[in-house]
């Protein structure tokens, strides 16, 4: 069951095309790095692959079927660069983290989520603390592909290494396919099985 973007094209009305005929394939267990300068459409490509935007041309196929033919929890999930924009500011984190179903103690512990954080609101936590919750939420059962858009760019190296160690172990165990967007070439070298430039 592979995730495939075929000839994806996307643009805003006046500004011309952000993405023009981009194709990529991601297999289970694979970690594909996506590099390229700012403004090249890396985030837009993630949004198309996760179904947040519809392409102007081309299609997104999961296991040969169009992504929008799937019902329920989308097997392709995106983790965003700014976690504070990806959680409901009015929900306590224990509610946000279980939006896609209950999350196991073990996973919370592996991500070093302190029990006290669950009772807090997003505004009371730092970016690194919030990102751990977003990852726990995205690892719901049934998810097959994770699109990681600069998910550790604003974190210190220790938190970054913590988060990636958990994600790599989960990806290995569940044979998840990862798309990893980053400006940091050393990070991509370390994480990816293959790197594509945009």
């Amino acid at each position: 069951m592979s995730l495939e973007g075929r000839n994806l094209t996307f643009g805003y009305r006046k500004k011309g095309r952000v993405l023009d005929q981009i194709s990529l394939t991601l297999e289970p267990g694979e970690r594909l790095g996506l590099a390229g300068p700012s403004g090249r459409g890396k985030t837009t490509l993630c949004k198309l692959l996760a179904g947040y935007e519809r392409p102007g041309g081309g299609e997104v196929l999961l296991d040969g079927r169009p992504l929008d033919a799937y019902r329920g929890l989308c097997p392709v999930q995106m983790i965003w660069q700014h976690p504070e924009t990806a959680v409901d500011p009015l929900l306590k984190l224990k509610d946000s983290v279980s939006e896609a179903g209950p999350v196991g103690e073990e996973l919370l512990e592996a991500l070093h989520i302190q029990p006290g954080w669950l009772e807090r609101y997003p505004a009371e936590l730092s970016g690194g603390e919030l990102q751990r919750f977003c990852i726990a939420r995205a690892l719901a059962p049934g998810v097959k592909y994770l699109l990681c858009d600069e998910i550790t760019a604003m974190l210190d190296p220790i938190t970054q290494a913590q988060i990636w160690n958990v994600l790599l172990a989960q990806a290995e165990e569940r044979q998840l396919g990862l798309l990893i967007v980053s400006h940091d070439s050393a990070l991509l070298e370390r994480l990816c099985t293959r790197i594509q430039r945009l």
Binding site: P157, Q162, E189
Partner: peptide, 12 residues
């Protein structure tokens, strides 16, 4: 910190 950098150990 130093050992956690991707180009060093990447050890958390």
């Amino acid at each position: 910190l130093w050992n956690a950098l991707p180009q060093n150990g990447f050890t958390p």
